[in-house]
Nucleic acid binder design. Sequence first.
DNA 1: CGTTAGTCGAACAGCGGTGTTTGAGTTAGC
DNA 2: GCTAACTCAAACACCGCTGTTCGACTAACG
Lengths: 198, 198
Amino acid sequence: MPVTRGRRADARRNVTAILDAAVECLSRDPDASVADIAQAAGIGRVTLYGHFASRGELLDAVFSRAMRHADAALDDLDIEGDPRQAMTALIRSSWRIVSQSRALLTAAQRGLPHGRVRELHEEPLRRIERLIERGREQGTFRADVPVPWLVATFFSVLHTAADEITAGRLDEAAAPHAITGTLLAAFTPPGQPVPAPE
Amino acid sequence: MPVTRGRRADARRNVTAILDAAVECLSRDPDASVADIAQAAGIGRVTLYGHFASRGELLDAVFSRAMRHADAALDDLDIEGDPRQAMTALIRSSWRIVSQSRALLTAAQRGLPHGRVRELHEEPLRRIERLIERGREQGTFRADVPVPWLVATFFSVLHTAADEITAGRLDEAAAPHAITGTLLAAFTPPGQPVPAPE
DNA sequence: CGTTAGTCGAACAGCGGTGTTTGAGTTAGC
DNA sequence: GCTAACTCAAACACCGCTGTTCGACTAACG
């Protein structure tokens, strides 16, 4: 019952402590146990179960909170104007978020029911979709492949970059250039020249 | 002890039956248990352990066999000539393989030690690397991002397409066009026009 | 046709996780 | 300062999985 209001102050404090600890633990190990998380939060396992009925419920809460934060961070971003410039900005902001909480995604994909991850991604996803559609109408982005495919490509490239960095095959400093370069090229309509990134 | 020669005929038959069943089970459920696999192979669990000392060893055998098959399938493919055309051909062939055994990869990533999956990917991976390098030297592919990054992009896009199909968001028939279109664009040097796929 | 390699089911031990109960202790809030 | 809300450690039952052992059975191979 993680209702955050009407409860005692220490209870509320504990809920966020659990959530924070969960983020930390799951980022380190996507299979982290409830016991691990409780310990990292500095509370007893029983207390945790007092707030979240099951491991799944906790996972859901953790991930959906992270997505809310991500979406909020994207809120103060100007999506209007030249689609290509807007896209570059959107990529940069998204990259910051993804590169931070990539491990969390793995945990969510492993422990949440099929489709739930996507469901929680819905809002930030629609942002990208809208921008792509606008760019298509103006002829800036390619129209010979479906929009959902371009959206998927967007996410895919970001996550791949994160993976490559963790694997030590991609320099963290070189990532932004590689990502934007790749995505802007992937979005360019056949026949048009690939824009130089940055 | 999966030494395939010098053993009795039924033993050899069983080993391949196990491997086949494992592919089938793990494709359906990446967390399939040893019991599931044994049952699907039509043999006892004990017999399976007679051939593979542990779950991990079985998984390794399954996946490395799959990779050997994949690499062999790529062998009769002409990589010489125009890099762009060669790349298109390589993408098509790789796509056939990936789209078939994508679920297997998930199982391998989950159950094999870190890096082992990549290790087994090494040979087919080098194929792509060589082609990309050749294309760079000729100015056909972009040189402003690292080669390993382009290789990672290659795999990433293929796997994403497979995921999108399973999720029902991408039409199977539309996939090849989307994939080659995206990858050829992503590989194009800044300033050069994006080639029309196919 | 005999020997040996291989198979089989049942049963066991061990592990690590989840989720629950109990009863006593502590802290917030009025 | 009283009470209700909350915390906590320990212990429990339960689950499914892995990997092993046993002894009997059966099929391959020479």
